[in-house]
Design a protein around this nucleic acid. Structure first.
Length: 583
RNA sequence: GCCCUCGUAGUUCAAUGGAUAGAACGCAGGCCUCCGGAGCUUGAAAUGCAGGUUCGAUUCCUGCCGAGGGCACCA
């Protein structure tokens, strides 16, 4: 998708360098291998710096002699000033080296772009609607909600940076049989004052009690179902009780979302689609997509034999998750006409989503790309790491623990900060570490939850990046105190390997962001930022900045400024990890 | 039984079919006459097994072994 979108105005022109390289090769291909025009032009990031900044193995794929192909292409490429050289290496790679002068000049573009550096228009004109977080009303947010919440939040920010118009929805679990059970349990054993005082735990207790009692007396299940049926049919009393529970729950969720810096444009829970299901059911029946199945349920048989049919309506006439989800897809389509619909949901629902998408296609509800952005399961080897409440590790509890641990480190490392600063830093570092732990690993890998990993405060972790940012900030503060208003003459040049190694990473930020958006992969950004922070730390240890002579001093200060911008913006895209000035 | 994921250093994780498979923690060593040592730096250490496709395979295909998940009225 990134391919072939090339912008020709001045600043835009340089934004996605990778696309420019593609364009150069594309032109040479048109000239030398006209029959190959249109074939994919792969661009790699070489693992070794001596192989340049970008590498293209296309000469190996054209047939004939790869090195001769490379020679022909190289001869046909008009080398722009921003490239130092293009070389043929190994079996026929074309290696592209960014020019040091360009790297120097580009620092000023980064500084000028400031908080907007990293943005691009790769997906401009497209709309994406996302669903994430979606906790269940009347139950607490557990640690398992952290994945959808944080991954979704990060993707929302990444999509926006890559040019998408983003609609952030939250498909709250506020409907279904469990509310019938809850209503029954509340009437039977509930205490209004207790629930008001401490809503979620009390409601959870009632829910748990219902299940305990139902084991002894299975008829309770039927009574729960009956209460839900009443709710669904609009029974005023059940309705009121349900609304009360929803409001209490939402208020609790808001607290956590705010703390995690998570926002939504709309929150359309499942109940929102309550009155939007009947038209879908009728449409499906009319089109012959829905037919009667075993025991009188309404099902949608699927083409793919390996998939069981999707159940649309239960034999007793009650609706199901799939019914609401189809209504949701239709609503999204009719309201926003998105190009992409994204659901950030556990891998366990993969089959379900495949069924859902196929049914939606058969009904012809939408042409949008439907993406189940799935993530791995979370396992907990450290069983006793947390007090368990209702068999759940509370998200809030994990956040508190993270902040507490960070606070202890701050006390130790930087006792001179004011109390208010320490509190702010502990919050930024603790929550940052948590977010980074989730986002830095490949989404689809199963997650093993251990405190040491989730709250890592050194090594490949958010605090490592934040520390680099704080050191950069510290240098810039001191520079400003010393010589406010110093003018950049542009005469300074970065010379040292440590400086250039850092400088050459920075221009790649926008394309990394675009790639993360394309593949729904925040971990690309995390990996990139870690590389930047490491290069900065090496630079910091090796190359003096404040004590350097002019004009090199200014060139290095520019490098520090630009690095600070990339780190801060990148952390922001990782679900709003804060970048403190001091820590 | 069928379907889908996944098996990479001691451990936790990376790697768009590309060049010498990267990190972190842990382990063994070296760095505070210099901008913040939450740091820098040197080293040992890995692609489950067997085939196949390819100029080139951690990546694609087949089989086996192992782990996780899913499979008609839950969400």
């Amino acid at each position: 998708m990134v391919r072939n979108i090339i912008c020709y105005n001045a600043f835009q022109h340089m934004k996605i360098i990778k696309n420019q390289i593609e364009h150069l090769i594309g032109e040479a291909l048109r000239q030398e291998f006209p029959d190959k025009v249109g074939s994919e032009i792969p661009i790699d990031y070489p693992t070794e710096a001596i192989h340049g900044d970008y590498a293209c193995p296309i000469a190996l794929k054209l047939g004939g002699n790869p090195r001769e192909n490379a020679q022909k292409l190289l001869a046909a490429i008009q080398k722009p000033d921003w490239l130092e050289k293009i070389e043929i290496a190994g079996p026929g790679f074309l290696n592209f080296y960014l020019a040091p002068q360009f790297l120097n000049d580009f620092l000023r573009e980064i500084i000028q772009a400031g908080e907007h550096f990293g943005e691009s228009d790769v997906f401009a004109g497209k709309t994406v609607v996302t669903d994430s977080s979606h906790p269940n009303v009347a139950k607490p947010m557990g640690i398992h909600h952290i994945l959808s919440t944080i991954i979704g939040n990060s993707l929302n920010r990444i999509f926006a940076a890559a040019g998408y118009k983003v609609v952030r929805d939250n498909y709250l679990g506020d409907w279904g049989t469990q509310f019938g059970k809850l209503i029954y349990a509340y009437r039977e054993w509930g205490d209004e004052a207790a629930v008001k005082k401490d809503p979620i735990p009390e409601l959870l207790k009632l829910y748990v009690k219902f299940h305990d009692e139902a084991e002894k007396d299975p008829s309770l299940e039927d009574r729960g179902r009956a209460e839900f049926k009443k709710l669904e049919e609009g029974d005023a009393e059940n309705r009121e009780l349900w609304q009360w529970v929803v409001d209490l729950s939402k208020a609790e969720f808001e607290k956590i979302w705010r703390r995690l810096d998570v926002e939504f444009d709309v929150i359309h829970g499942e109940s929102f689609y309550e009155d939007k299901m009947q038209p879908i059911i009728e449409e499906g029946i009319a089109k012959g997509v829905f037919v009667e199945g075993e025991r009188g349920a309404l099902i949608a048989p699927l083409q793919d034999e390996s998939m069981p049919p999707a159940i649309i309506r239960k034999a007793d006439g009650a609706t199901l998750y799939a019914t609401r989800d189809l209504a949701r897809i239709k609503y999204w389509e009719d309201t926003w006409h998105p190009d992409v619909m994204v659901n950030v949901v556990d891998v366990a629902q993969e089959l379900y989503f495949r069924q859902l998408v196929e049914v939606a296609q058969m009904l012809g509800i939408t042409d949008a790309r439907n993406e189940h952005v799935q993530f791995g399961r979370m396992s907990f080897p450290e069983k006793k790491m947390s007090t368990r409440k209702g068999n759940i590790i509370l998200l809030e509890e994990v956040i508190d623990e993270a902040v507490e641990r960070a606070r202890a480190i701050v006390e130790e490392k930087n006792p001179n900060l004011s109390d208010a600063q320490k509190t702010a830093v502990a919050e930024a570092v603790g929550i940052g570490a948590l977010k980074y732990a989730v986002l830095s690993q490949n989404r689809t890998t199963n997650v093993t939850f251990t405190w040491d990993k989730v709250l890592a405060l050194d090594g490949n972790s958010a605090p490592y990046l934040q520390y680099a940012h704080a050191r950069a900030s510290s240098i810039l503060r001191k520079a400003e105190e010393e010589d406010a208003g110093f003018a950049d003459t542009g005469a300074g040049q970065l010379q040292e390997a440590a400086s250039l190694n850092l400088a050459r990473l920075l221009p790649k930020f926008p394309e990394v962001v675009a790639r993360a958006a394309e593949f729904f992969a925040p971990n690309y950004i995390a990996t990139y930022l870690f590389d930047v922070a490491r290069a900065f730390s090496a630079f910091y240890a090796e190359v003096p900045v404040l004590q350097a002579e002019e004009p090199e001093r200014t060139a290095r200060l520019n490098l520090v400024k630009a690095t600070k911008i990339v780190l801060a913006n990148g952390l922001g895209l990782l679900g709003g990890v804060q970048a403190p000035e001091e820590m």
